[in-house]
Design a binder for these strands. Sequence first.
DNA 1: AGGCGCATGTAATGGGTTACATGATTGA
DNA 2: TCAATCATGTAACCCATTACATGCGCCT
Lengths: 179, 179
Amino acid sequence: MSTPHAILIALLEKPSSGYDLARRFDRAIGYFWQATHQQIYRELGRMVAAGWVSVMDDAAASRKKVYAVLPVGRDEVARWVRETPLGPNERNVFLLKLRADAVIGPLGLAEQLARLVRENRARLAVYREIEQRDFGAAVLSRGQALQYAILKAGIRTQESWLAWAAEVGPLVSDASPDA
Amino acid sequence: MSTPHAILIALLEKPSSGYDLARRFDRAIGYFWQATHQQIYRELGRMVAAGWVSVMDDAAASRKKVYAVLPVGRDEVARWVRETPLGPNERNVFLLKLRADAVIGPLGLAEQLARLVRENRARLAVYREIEQRDFGAAVLSRGQALQYAILKAGIRTQESWLAWAAEVGPLVSDASPDA
DNA sequence: AGGCGCATGTAATGGGTTACATGATTGA
DNA sequence: TCAATCATGTAACCCATTACATGCGCCT
């Protein structure tokens, strides 16, 4: 999932301490992208060394260090979003890139989305074939019914994601809306 | 995800060689549960040592080793399905357990499914609150629209999974259908 | 005075990923 | 005979997970 970039993006949204980051990753953020506080502290250390983020002692809470993304780190996020190809099945990574796109201007995600859509459509077609071939019978045994249920989980997931993708498409389209 | 148990269950469905297992994990199976051939060979070695599976040279293809699950391994699968609690967000692990349930009799998954349903309903409620609180405005900026899209991905996922769970419920219910 | 939550870290383990390696079979 | 696929493995690295550790501040 690329923990460092997930952290960078979270810091772009709001500069935070390691502790606060850990809490954010425990809450809403953590449903898609997970990181423990140990990973967070380790990556923060590395990223400070790399010059991607800065550290400052919090004025209010004495023993708190607030991390913020430096321009170099911002560029690194943009580079990662643009250049790192998405594996199949990496929808949550795409969501992470969307988050980056929401914070720092448009990054041209249309092509990557289109690719995901193509792959997921293809997978859905495969599932549909299996469905017709293996589960066409009127009566299924318990085992078959369960295997069918597993397949249906896949089918539903694909369909629901594709419907979502159709909605987001316009938001990441490179062409201006009314050109 | 527990690679060893994923392999055991795949072997229960069909005794295979390491190579064939790797191919199965590359295809349909691998959409939910992934394992490279190196992991597979390592785990097969361990499980043979543990007495969970047996090895036999394939009669047809000379240099092929066919692995099959022994009774002890079968019991281990049943134990794992029953006793290992599901973390939140481990829906694919539940699917893996369903596959085990499909191969070796009913294993009493109703309770675990009910728990997942409760958790996912709660999460959906949280998302709905965020939706109303943060995205009620008529006009959203580009960034807000994208953040909303990310939230909607979560909402859709929850809804679609809950609909699926409602369908599977009867299949794993412990009570007999018409008692 | 003691316990709990805050806040930051270190250390060790185990598993996943990648690269490397070998030999046998099949088809062009 | 050359390349590609089959089939099995070893080795090294990196990362995630778990456990351990420390000290401050607040509340009772």
